[in-house]
Structures are given as C-alpha cells and as structure tokens.
Design a protein around this nucleic acid. Sequence first.
RNA 1: GUGGGUAUGGUGAAGCUGGCCUAACACGGCGGAUUGUGGCUCCGUUAUUUUCGCAGGUUCAAAUCCUGUUACCCACCCCA
Length: 427
Amino acid sequence: MLTSVPRGTKDILPSEVGAWRYVEGVLRDLCRCFGFKEIRTPVFEHTELFQRGIGDTTDVVEKEMYTFIDRGNRSITLRPENTASAVRSFIEHKMYADPDPAKLFYIGPMFRYDRPQAGRQRQFHQFGVELLGAAGPNADAEIILLAVQILRKLGLKDLQLKINTVGCPECRPAYREKLQDYYRPHLAELCEDCRSRFDRNPMRILDCKNEKCHALAAGAPKLAECLDEACKEHFAKVQELLTASGVEFTVDPTLVRGLDYYTRTAFEIQYTPLGAQSAVLGGGRYDGLVEEVGGPATPGIGFAMGMERVILALQSQNLLPEKDDGIDVFAIAPKAEAAALAFTTVEQLREVGICAAYDYQQRSMKAQMKAANRLNAKFVLIFGEDELSRGMVTLRDMQTEDKDNSQREIPVADITTILKTEVQKNE
RNA sequence: GUGGGUAUGGUGAAGCUGGCCUAACACGGCGGAUUGUGGCUCCGUUAUUUUCGCAGGUUCAAAUCCUGUUACCCACCCCA
C-alpha cells in the first residue's frame, strides 16, 4: 500500500510528460489565437457550488464527489469539473462588468469517485474553455470550431462530432410532460435507473443504454417538436455556421448532457476506438448557470476535453512526438585526476545555456561513452591525460557516421566558445 | 455500485492437469572481447532471507489447488 498510488490515480512519469507538454502546447497556442485566457481555480471548492451548479440529481453530484469536512467544519469538495468554478470566479471577480465577454480556459486535475476503467480515472485531467456573456449562435459555432481545430491540429482522425439542442427553460417543461406521458404506460418495462429518472429527469431516459429503454426511446416524442421558435432558430443558425465552416457533424437527438446546467446546444466529439469511454470532448451552452450560482443572468457556453483520452487516442494513431531531445555535451574523465576539471567545465557550460552532463560514478571510459550515448549527447568532451598535458581536450561529434574522423583536439581555454558555436550550428 | 478476467525480476513474459522451478526465453543493466572511446556483433553476469500481489489454508511437497484481501484490466453505469 505504501508503495502504490491510490486506486484510480496515476503517476505521469518523466517518459510520459513530453506527450502532455506537447498537447498542452497545442492547446495554449490555439487558445491564444481564439482569444481565450488561462484561469486557474482551486482544486477544491465549497460543496454547495457543485450541488447548485451541476445539479443535485446528477450522478456526478450524487455518487461521484470527493467530499469531506475540513478542520473548520466546512464541507469541501474536490472539483469534479471546472465549469462551476470558472463561473464562481466570474461572479466573484465581477467579470460581468467587463466590456467584452469573458473567454477563459483551464487545464488541470479533476476528481470523480468512479470505478476506474480504460480512459477513466479518479484523478483525471481536463482542458476546457468557457465563453461567458455571448448569447448568439455564432458563439456556439465558434466554441465547437475551437474544439474541432484543436483535434485537427493534433492530427486526430476518425472523430465524430455530434450535436443536439436540449431546449431552454421555456420549452423544456412542455417536453418533459410529453415525455412522461409517453413513458407512463411503459414504466414497468424501464430499467430501475430509468424509473427513478422518470420523475427527476425524464430526458435522461433517452440516453439510457439499457436495451429495452433504448428501444423505447426510438418511439419517444422528439424535443424538436416542442422547441420554441427562438431555440429552433438558434439551433438552425449554429448548424448553418458549422456547415459554412466546412465542419462535418451529425445531429443526434438522443445526445443529452449529464450535467443539469446545459441549455440549447449540446455537443460531443467521439473517438470510437477508445472503447466504452469514447467521448474525448463534450460541452454545450449553459445560459442559466451564472444566475443559478448567484450572478447576474449571463449566457455561457463551453466544453471540456479529457486529456488522458486525447493522449490515448493520439497514442493509438501514433501522433505523439518522438521522445525528447538529448543533451548537448557529455564530459568524460577517463582518469580520476581529471574529474574535477570535467566537473567545473560542465558547470561553466551550463551557465551559458549548454545542456551538459557527466558520469557520476567514475566508471570506465567505455561505460562513460555508453552513458553519453544513452543520453543522446551531441558531443563528448574527453579529458584525457595526453591531451591535457598539452592543454587540450578531445571533442567528439557523436552524430556522424564516420567514427574515425569525428573528433579533434581543442584548447581547454576555448571549450566554452567552441561548443557554443558547435551547438548553434547543430540547431 | 454490478459482472468477468488478470496479478511472476528493472521491463515484456514462459510455467499454472501440484514435485524435474534452487523459475525458460527476450529486452534492459553491469563487466569483458577493444590495457583511453558509444551506437553493430560475440562472451560472461544479472529474481541478495528457498522467491512467484498480500494474508491464511490443504498437502510429504504449491508460482502451480482452496479461501479471503488489495490492485490492475475489460464491460455495465456514468462522463471528459
């Protein structure tokens, strides 16, 4: 127990960090182009924020939160997602007073007490964006396009974009009633979960994967029939804009987001080969959330992306960059007498920005050469007895094929300047 | 929360109708062939309380059978 991570968590090892930094880099670059600024909110918040924001009856809040009482007797919860926190911060810092909409993005760990599975961990990482204060369908389309561009830039193929509209507080009650009317005679056929959903949130029955429920859903009334004019028009415009931008998508009337705050546009991007956890990214509009949490009525839209899932997908398509580059110089001291000079030289090289290393263990020359090779060193400096007696060291180019002509002697005094130009040449 | 599978060294793993396992093979590591020089090749070595996730049990005898436990994987569920 002492020597293993808690269930559902993972170390991201040095060998894996490169992939993360790469993906994060792409995300940050694109966010900059789209005008989104990073926000970093605390990993824990008052429990009530998530209960209010995400919704009391959602699975996430009901059975997946890491909640505890702190020493000051406050109920604290490790964030299961970042939208509620972003909205809280938006209100707390009165960003609604800014002349322009708030455009925020975040990357960080989230926590959900789930049963771990492929692409699902208890501590996982999400990247997400939130656009607060823009109500028009162009905002919806822009957010979806950002998502599409990110995945495109990463090179991912075989993705499916699904969109839907879940209506607004004006038209949803009518739909809710219609749904209940439809399901009432079939209550006995529904699975246990759906029977409890019937009262609390009948829209989620549509989403059920249970065979019978799924079959019944096919004949259920469609939300489209109940949408008010404004919602209909909004959804139509979003589709128009997406089509105009050349983005392929399918309208999936069964797509229902699991968090209560969503209104109107909902969307998801899937990568089917990931298995059961194929949703790489999901989001939608949440026009009521800011008000629900206690701010002035402000429209909002955003999405969240599962970092682990994206990296898994990139791995399966072989799109991750090769392992990180090696060092510039490895200093070798064949005899112990020269070790001190090698050491100080390494320090001097590092001071001018050259990545240098040496052998910590005073091993044989051959072992030191092998170490240099493992570290992928571009050059090796050999502090050999003979050369040193003449005030020289050997500089060996490790990258050339021609072993015999790959080294020359250089004066000890010029090591730094010569290496500086050599390393630059190499760039 | 439910169901199924798995658990052997630094890594990938063989072995699992019990004794020949004081645990194959491969990679990696270390040393050497090359007495001061890497990447290829070859040789040697490499599970440091009789050790096979952990804790018990059956047996003359268990990595191999049984029970419990923990973790991981897969699916349900949920979601990113």
